[in-house]
Structures are given as structure tokens and as C-alpha cells.
Simulated scan of single mutants.
Amino acid sequence: MTNYHVVKNIILSEEEHNTDKSLRSASASNESILRFDFKILANTLNKGTEYRLDQDWLIDKSSDVTKNQLPQPDKLDYALLRVDGEPGNKPIGASTEGSVKRGWIEIPTNAHEFKINQALFILQHPLGEPLKLAFDLDVIKDIDPSGTLIKYRTNTDYGSSGSPCFDSNWNLVALHHTGSPSYNAGTPVNAIVKLLDQRNILEKILSRQPI
């Protein structure tokens, strides 16, 4: 899962290619790369493992937030992508005997109760750099009553859109989508889960089976 606005151009390009057969072989999705485990560990850069999008790659989407407006319940700025392969079932790093599978981030089924001044942790790739953890205490500054937006002060940079946000117990609570000089913002996972359930997709995700 990432933000809709991250892959918006690919989605629009794909729609154009689907109406023009001469363009389909040049689809932008064919050139897209998803890189897992791009990080520095013990002062050594792990360049990660590359995956491609599946041919039928877009599982679900919710369009991006209108500027200066609150997100609507059906416009939560997310895109659920189908990967060519099963990275969750593959080992982290080099495949050796006893290697640990990458696994998945647990999708919460119980609504998270946000509170002002809670801590927030964000795993991100700012400016396309290796994985970085940004965290701070007492950073949640506003929770919209609609349940579709939270604002916080945890530091992010360009390229961090689509990053997962966690509480201090490492529960997934939001999907980061906006940065500004005054605050950063994300979509609560509660809202995304509700929409996925309405669209009959949530149960398939929770089964951990390929969709």
C-alpha cells in the first residue's frame, strides 16, 4: 500500500494505454520498480531486493485529498498494489538456511484511539535515501472529528509519502501523505480499513493470501 498520489501518474497513464492499444507495451507500470529492504545495517548499505508490479497490478484505490479540504471517506489517498511475486513470503536479505521471512505489517481490525500529544513513529525513505526512522514524543497536534485526517510534527521529507506511521507500541495507525512547514498529515488506518471492508477487500487482506 502507498498513497494514490504516488502512483497517480501511472494509473492515469495505464488508463490512457488501455484505450490506445498502440501504447500498451510502453505502459509506465512495466517500468516501475518496488525495492524492499533498502537500508543501512551495521554500516553496510543493503541495496535491497527489486520487485515489479503484477500485470493486473491495481487492486484498489482511493483518490487523493483535495487541496485545503478535509479528506472525504472515499477519498483517502491510498492505492493497494499487487506485486509480481510474494515478497512477504521471501527471506529478508540473502536467502540462507534459517532465514527469517519478511512477513507483513499487521493491519489493525480494532479502531485506534488517537489522542493529542501522543508519540508517532514513521518509517520512511526521505529523498529516496535508505530506510530511516523518524520519531518524536508529544507530536500529534490535531485529530479531525471526521476520522479521515490526523496532523503531527514528526519530521518527514520529500519522498516519504506512503510511509507507515506507528504508535509507541508499533501498531500501524496511519498512512503518511502530506508534509508542510507547519505540520505533517496522514490518513488514519481506521478510515482505510473501513473503506476496504465496504469494498469487500479487507477479509482477503487479513487472510495473508495473495489477492
Rank of each mutant, 00 (worst) to 15 (best):
T66S: 15
H112Y: 14
T156V: 03
P130H: 03
A134R: 11
P73K: 06
V139D: 01
P71Y: 01
N43W: 14
G186F: 02
R52G: 07
N155I: 05
S27V: 08
I143G: 01
I11N: 08
F36Q: 04
D54Y: 07
I33D: 12
T148R: 01
S180T: 14
F36S: 05
P73V: 07
L127T: 09
L58F: 12
N171S: 15
L127V: 09
G88Q: 04
G98T: 05
I201H: 02
L80D: 05
E50G: 09
L53W: 05
D197M: 04
Y152K: 00
R82F: 07
I116F: 01
T49L: 03
A174H: 01
R153S: 15
I192S: 02
R24D: 09
K101Y: 06
D77P: 00
K47N: 15
T154G: 02
V173H: 04
K67A: 14
L131A: 08
P130R: 05
L175A: 03
V7T: 07
P145S: 08
E203I: 07
I211L: 05
G85E: 10
E203R: 13
S160N: 08
K90P: 03
I92Y: 05
N68G: 11
L195H: 04
W170C: 05
E16M: 09
T178F: 04
L81H: 04
L202M: 08
G147L: 06
I40K: 15
Q124R: 00
I33M: 13
I10Q: 02
